[in-house]
Amino acid sequence: MSNAAARTLRAHPLALQLVILAGFALFPLAGDDYLVVELTQYLVYGIFAMGLSLVWGYAGILCFGHAVFFGLGAYVMALVSKGMVPGIGGALASGWAAMALAVAVVALFAVLLGYFLFYGRLSGPYLGIVTLAISVIAERVAIKWYYIGGYNGLTGIPPLSLGGREIIDIVPMYYLIASFAVGVYLLCRRIVASPFGTIVAAVRDNEDRAEFFGYNTAYYKIVIFAVGAAVAGLAGALFAVVTEFVSPTMIGFGMSTEVLIWVALGGKEVLLASFLGALLVRAMESFLSDVLTYYWFLILGLFFVACVMFFPRGVFGRLLAARPMATGAKAGGAGET
C-alpha cells in the first residue's frame, strides 16, 4: 500500500474498517474452497487473539495461559454437544446451548482464577508464571484423562444448526464465523471505549493512582480478564465446531505462546490489529511451512524479535490505532476508534 493511501485510511478509521470488512465478505466469491476452509479457521484464531488483546493490550495483564480458556471452551463444547456430560441432555445439549454453556463455564473459571490472582496482588512475572503453570497442568490433565479422549482428543462434534438447517457447507460456515468475529469485535470495541474501558486502561497505566481515586482495581482486572477469557472460550467452542475435533494441544502451553505471538506481532493495544496478527501469522505459516519446513519456526522467531525491536506496537498497531479524539467529537464517540 502506498504511503499516501495508508495515510488517507488512517485518517478515516471507519473507512478502513469497512474496507477490511468488505474484503472478508467478498473472499468466498473468489471460489477457492480450500482457502475458505483455511480462512474460517484463521477467523476463529482471530477471535481468540482479540480476547488476549483485551487482557494483555488493554488491561496490561501478561497471561501465559490464555489457551486454557480456548481449550476449556472447546472441550465443554465438545463434551456437552456430544452428550457426554451426565445430566445435560436434550435441548441443553444442542449446539447453541452447548456454546453458551462453554462461554459461561470459561467466564466463571476466569472469575475464580482472577479472584485469586488479583486479590492476591499478583502481577508481572509472577502472574506470567502462574498462568503458564496452569496451562501446562491443563494440557497434562487433558492428555491423561481418558474420558475426554486423552491424547487423541475428541472427534465427531455435531454441527450447529440455524433455522432448522445444519451448517455443514464451508461457505455458510465461513459467514457464520465471520459474523461472530464482527460481533465480538464490535462488543469488545464498545467495552474498551466505555467509561469502564477507560478505568481499565488507567489501572494498567498506574494502578496506585487509580486506586487512590477510589476504584477497586482488582475488580476491574477480574472483569476484563473474565471477558477476555470468555472471548477465548467462544473461539474455542467455534473451533470445535469448525474442525469437528478437539485435542490437548489446544489447551496447552504451545497454543498459549502462539496466541501471544500473534497478538504481539499484530499489535496488542488494538483489537483489530491483534485479530489481523493471528491471520497474518497463520497464513504465513501455511504458505511458508510447506516451502521452508521446520525453518519456518526460525523465520517466525526472527520476525518476532524484529517486531518487538522495531515495531513495538505491532505490524498493524500504528495503522489501526484509534485516532486521537477530536475535541469537538460527540459525547458517545469520545475515544472510540
Binding site: 464498545r190 467495552i191 466505555s194 467509561p195 469502564f196 474501558g197 478505568i199 472483569v223 471477558v227 460527540k330 459525547a331 458517545g332 469520545a334
Partner: peptide, 9 residues
C-alpha cells in the same frame, strides 16, 4: 459503571 455505558452529553 456498566461496561456498555456511554457518556451522556
Amino acid at each position: 459503571m456498566l461496561m456498555f455505558g456511554r457518556m451522556d452529553a
